[in-house]
Simulated scan of single mutants.
Amino acid sequence: MRWVLACGLCVCVAACNGADPIPSQAPDPRFVGLTLVPVSTGLAVARSGGRHIDFGRARDGALSTIAAIAGKAPVAQPCEGLDAFAVGTDLIVIFSADRFVGWQTRTGRAGRACGAGAV
Rank of each mutant, 00 (worst) to 15 (best):
residue 51 R to M: 11
residue 80 E to N: 08
residue 94 I to V: 15
residue 23 P to V: 04
residue 82 L to H: 12
residue 8 G to P: 01
residue 75 V to A: 15
residue 116 A to Y: 11
residue 48 S to F: 06
residue 38 P to Q: 00
residue 105 T to Q: 03
residue 70 A to T: 01
residue 85 F to S: 04
residue 104 Q to V: 00
residue 46 A to E: 12
residue 14 A to T: 10
residue 45 V to K: 02
residue 43 L to M: 09
residue 27 P to H: 02
residue 43 L to G: 09
residue 75 V to I: 15
residue 52 H to G: 06
residue 3 W to T: 13
residue 45 V to R: 07
residue 3 W to P: 01
residue 1 M to D: 14
residue 3 W to N: 13
residue 71 G to T: 07
residue 3 W to H: 14
residue 44 A to P: 09
residue 118 A to R: 06
residue 68 A to F: 08
residue 113 A to Q: 06
residue 109 R to M: 12
residue 26 A to T: 12
residue 62 A to M: 09
residue 65 T to N: 08
residue 68 A to N: 12
residue 30 R to L: 08
residue 49 G to A: 03
residue 75 V to C: 11
residue 31 F to V: 12
residue 34 L to H: 13
residue 60 D to A: 15
residue 101 V to I: 08
residue 6 A to L: 15
residue 89 T to A: 14
residue 4 V to D: 11
residue 111 G to M: 04
residue 72 K to Y: 05
residue 11 V to A: 14
residue 63 L to V: 03
residue 38 P to N: 00
residue 62 A to F: 07
residue 59 R to F: 05
residue 11 V to D: 04
residue 97 A to T: 05
residue 119 V to N: 13
residue 110 A to C: 09
residue 74 P to Q: 07
residue 5 L to M: 09
residue 111 G to L: 05
residue 108 G to L: 04
residue 96 S to C: 06
residue 25 Q to V: 15
residue 81 G to D: 00
residue 2 R to Q: 15
residue 86 A to Q: 13
residue 83 D to F: 08
residue 5 L to E: 10
residue 37 V to H: 04
residue 74 P to A: 05
residue 98 D to L: 09
residue 99 R to P: 09
residue 98 D to P: 02
residue 55 F to P: 03
residue 115 G to C: 05
residue 3 W to F: 11
residue 116 A to W: 11
residue 71 G to H: 07
residue 71 G to E: 07
residue 119 V to M: 06
residue 62 A to G: 08
residue 100 F to C: 01
residue 111 G to W: 03
residue 93 V to Y: 03
residue 48 S to C: 05
residue 47 R to V: 05
residue 10 C to T: 10
residue 105 T to W: 03
residue 75 V to D: 09
residue 71 G to A: 10
residue 82 L to A: 08
residue 66 I to N: 05
residue 40 S to N: 08
residue 71 G to K: 03
residue 98 D to G: 01
residue 117 G to H: 03
residue 51 R to E: 15
residue 108 G to Q: 15
residue 24 S to E: 15
residue 39 V to Q: 14
residue 55 F to S: 04
residue 39 V to D: 10
residue 32 V to E: 12
residue 20 D to H: 13
residue 33 G to F: 07
residue 91 L to S: 04
residue 80 E to T: 10
residue 17 N to A: 11
residue 39 V to S: 08
residue 44 A to S: 15
residue 51 R to N: 14
residue 28 D to C: 11
residue 78 P to V: 00
residue 63 L to R: 08
residue 17 N to H: 08
residue 85 F to K: 11
residue 25 Q to L: 15
residue 20 D to A: 14
residue 63 L to D: 03
residue 114 C to P: 01
residue 87 V to W: 09
residue 43 L to N: 05
residue 102 G to Q: 05
residue 105 T to V: 06
residue 78 P to Y: 02
residue 80 E to Q: 10
residue 20 D to S: 13
residue 65 T to L: 13
residue 82 L to Y: 14
residue 32 V to G: 07
residue 58 A to Y: 10
residue 81 G to S: 04
residue 19 A to R: 11
residue 70 A to L: 02
residue 109 R to I: 07
residue 113 A to W: 00
residue 113 A to C: 07
residue 84 A to W: 00
residue 95 F to A: 00
residue 95 F to C: 00
residue 56 G to F: 12
residue 107 T to N: 11
residue 13 V to E: 02
residue 50 G to M: 10
residue 54 D to C: 13
residue 71 G to F: 02
residue 67 A to C: 05
residue 107 T to S: 12
residue 104 Q to Y: 00
residue 19 A to P: 01
residue 11 V to G: 04
residue 84 A to K: 01
residue 105 T to M: 02
residue 103 W to P: 02
residue 107 T to L: 11
